[in-house]
Nucleic acid binder design. Structure first.
Lengths: 99, 99
DNA sequence: TCTATATTTCTAGTTTTATCGAAATATAAG
DNA sequence: CTTATATTTCGATAAAACTAGAAATATAGA
């Protein structure tokens, strides 16, 4: 994963509100949640929530799908997994061995 | 780990410059690097770098130790590991099983 | 078509962040 | 005590983010 992509991902997780939204979706599993569901569980006002969801979507942390007049939001587990791996990926690559 | 703490950590990783600094330190291993070393490798001006290092330190992503007139910076592997784990920690906790 | 529901866009005010030169501080060495 | 080196703080500016009410859009159903 590119550093730029990773930074964008972490930035999207780096707000309390958004991390709470993301965690809610991670908990929810494959079925995902409607925007309204998330609104209920987090108490975040609609306009603010829409803003955060857009942020999370453009960082590829979640995926949105319209179903009738509702929108289903799901965590993007693959990308999240890749971000988690990125953090320590290159651990100690430059470390010199000494006696 | 508390959500607030995690958010602060991800926020600190969520800037390209800072993520580059962090990655440099993660690569460096247990010996760490001096501020000047990081400055050389990243090309970030001193005052800007000091700002970012403070940010990373207060998020507990790195640790600083004065050694004479230099300062040794090390990645905080434990905390980084915990953050990586946090991302998917509660995966699917709310998911309902169905036939 | 009219109405109700779900979600987003618009707009604006406030706060936070990023950047970096210049000056200040800390410490070592002579 | 003076000088040189390493790093931080100050100060200022520009850019980006957070928040949320009000208005707009999209779609379903009667």
């Amino acid at each position: 994963m590119e550093l730029v992509t990773a930074a964008q991902g972490f930035s999207a997780m780096g707000s309390e509100s958004r991390l709470e939204v993301l965690q809610t979706l991670v908990r929810a599993g494959d079925k995902g949640l409607l925007v309204g569901d998330i609104q209920q569980r987090t108490g975040i006002p609609g306009s603010t929530l829409a803003h955060h969801l857009k942020f999370l979507t453009s960082a590829d942390l979640i995926v949105q799908n319209r179903q009738g007049r509702t929108i289903i939001n799901k965590a993007n587990y693959q990308h999240l997994q890749a971000l988690a791996a990125f953090i320590l990926e290159e651990c100690c690559a430059d470390q010199e061995i000494e006696k």
